[in-house]
Design a protein around this nucleic acid. Structure first.
Lengths: 130, 130, 130, 130
DNA sequence: GTGGTCTAGACCACG
DNA sequence: GTGGTCTAGACCACT
């Protein structure tokens, strides 16, 4: 379910947050769905339970997930709203990235082709009807 | 010459490296140009000299700049090659970013417009013929 | 009869205790009245029977309810005394809360209006003569 | 500077967050002020550095404080905005608290007197001119 | 069983 | 020196 890169500059707990976000955007996790328990995910990923807990706390703080007493952790009902705000920020990142590419002499056509490819590919596209 | 954001997650020394790269791409710094001395830049930016030194070491390691004993630091002759490789990596980053935006339900048109805007804007555009 | 909020930081068993207190204060439950059986309340609220039992134990310990072997659970005769002590504690909580609001720059008038509103509203007001 | 109650139901890290909030509201900490270092506060309070770190992370997430590289942690520039939102929530809490007190038979006059006392007391009142 | 908190101690990156 | 991350292991509260 999750793929951890120990060498990444991104801390493990943020990797889990990020991947959870993507699973939600991809429709593989929906609001109300249960997340794996701290201990089980800890075992699956061979990561300390504290680190998993921290990832979950991170998601609680961001409003992506909620914790229910001795029951477990669940995707928040309004997780999608949070993720939409995220997308707005990413659009800005894209702008500076493209500016860099332009300065580096990359022709506009090259970039447009990349984008065509992404949008032409239907894999993982669960939101067409939304 | 440089603009440091103390709040950024990007370490200060990397901010200096990144901005130097942009100045080169923008043509404001050319191979052979002299970089400010560690002490003067330290004073200008109100940044610890160690941090400036680290930024310069970073650029030496990447082949963007060279140190000439007793004379100072200069933009490397083959700095532009290095920056071209950089651009290739950024193209990949762009691809995952666009994939995320697609999943978030951002329409392709929105992204294409952003790119149009960047390329339509002639500011700082010194490398059209590359 | 009870309204459980699974998301609340307040444990479920305390939510039941608190709401029982309010029902007593509102006069909807009187000393000697029978409380629902653990099993039936468990079913009604879709809450684990252990949790209901814990809530009842909580109320026994506080002197709000009593268990009569084989018959069921009942509101204690001196439940109202217990609740009066409760009110004294809440007055202290109110004081620190108002202190915080004052520090936050909330004008006294705003708070006085809130209180006026509560006392002006006659709903559920069964104890005016106490 | 901080007062920790190990027996409180409120976790230590939240006690630190809460007390920091009050210090800000009281004007004893202003935006831009430096918070004690993780290690020094850890020593002062005899609390594990991890716990202090968690408290600080909590404040970062809430926008009350910011962390600057190897420099230290500081009160965020817009901390006061965050605290104002906090006050709005507390006003709601006040309302339910007063409702409880009314039900418990506490006369309105008693409550009004309490509030008079708080607002009459000028101690720690740094915001009169704001 | 679940999540939540805390301690202890190590290591890294940044300034 | 600073903060940030992670592991290991313990303990508690709630369901």
């Amino acid at each position: 379910m999750f793929q951890i890169d120990l060498m990444s500059r991104l801390p493990i707990y943020e990797q889990i947050t990020e991947q959870t976000k993507r699973l939600i955007l991809a429709g593989l996790l929906k609001p109300g769905d249960k997340l794996p328990s701290v201990r089980s995910l800890s075992a699956t990923l061979s990561v300390n339970p504290n680190t998993i807990q921290r990832a979950y706390n991170d998601m609680f703080a961001k409003g992506i997930a909620v914790s229910i007493g001795g029951k477990g952790c669940f995707i928040a009902q309004d997780a999608l709203e949070v993720l939409n705000n995220d997308a707005m920020q990413k659009l800005k990142t894209l702008e500076t990235l493209v500016t860099d590419l332009k300065l580096a002499g990359i022709p506009e056509q090259t970039i447009l082709e990349k984008i065509e490819n992404v949008y032409a590919n239907q894999e993982g596209n669960f939101h067409d009807s939304n």
